[in-house]
Computed example of a mutant assay.
Amino acid sequence: MILYGLKTCDTCRKALKSLPDAEFRDVRADGVPGEVLESAHARFGASLLNTRSTTWRGLSEAERAGDPLSLLAAHPTLMKRPLIVDGGEMHLGWGRDVQAALLG
């Protein structure tokens, strides 16, 4: 299980604490592999982008209208967090539904 997030993100820390066996990858330092981003975008669509982030608010209208995958490649902190890859399954965020699916 791989958890993509930010080491400074409180939600990512909570998820990592609850999933001690997960491998953590900081999206700011390590990025997210292109194939993982493509799969996540195919699964979650527009909800993969965190449109409430400071990074999003700093983008121009033209940048916001661009390809989401290109935006995420250029600004990995725009990704909603955490993105959890567990074998063939993907989970986005750390809501009750994700916790129930992963913790039982």
Rank of each mutant, 00 (worst) to 15 (best):
V27K: 06
W56M: 14
L49Q: 06
I2H: 14
R43C: 12
K14P: 01
G66C: 12
M1Y: 05
W56V: 14
S60G: 13
S47L: 12
L92F: 10
E38W: 05
L102A: 11
K80G: 09
G31A: 12
L92S: 13
L102S: 08
L72P: 00
T8L: 08
G66T: 11
L69D: 12
D26I: 01
T51L: 04
Y4V: 09
A73L: 09
D21M: 03
T54E: 11
G93Q: 02
G104W: 02
V98R: 09
L6K: 04
G58R: 02
K7G: 04
V32K: 05
V27D: 04
A65I: 05
A100F: 02
L16I: 02
A22P: 07
I2Y: 10
L59S: 11
G66D: 12
L103P: 00
E89H: 15
A62D: 11
A65V: 07
V27G: 11
T8G: 07
H75V: 10
S18D: 15
C9F: 03
T11Q: 04
G87E: 03
S18K: 15
L83R: 00
K80A: 14
A22W: 04
P20C: 12
R96Y: 06
G34V: 08
T55V: 12
A101D: 06
S53Q: 09
S60M: 04
R64C: 11
W94N: 01
P76H: 02
D86Y: 06
A74F: 06
W94F: 10
D97G: 10
M79L: 13
V27C: 09
S53G: 13
L16V: 03
S47I: 12
L48Y: 03
A42F: 07
N50K: 03
E23N: 10
M90K: 01
R57K: 15
L19P: 08
G104E: 05
W56S: 14
G93R: 04
D21N: 02
S47A: 15
H75L: 06
G45I: 10
E61Y: 06
E35D: 15
F44T: 04
G95S: 13
C9D: 14
A42P: 07
A62W: 01
L69W: 08
D67R: 03
L48R: 08
D10M: 00
S70K: 13
G93H: 02
P82I: 02
L37W: 03
I2V: 15
M1N: 10
T51H: 06
D67V: 07
R57L: 11
L103H: 00
S47K: 14
L16H: 05
E38Q: 15
V98Q: 07
K17W: 09
S47Q: 15
P76R: 00
E61H: 13
K80P: 01
T8D: 13
D97C: 01
R57E: 08
A22G: 05
A22Y: 09
L69Q: 11
T51K: 14
T51Y: 02
D67P: 07
A101N: 03
S53P: 03
S70I: 07
A74M: 12
P76G: 03
T51P: 14
R64Y: 00
E63R: 14
P76E: 08
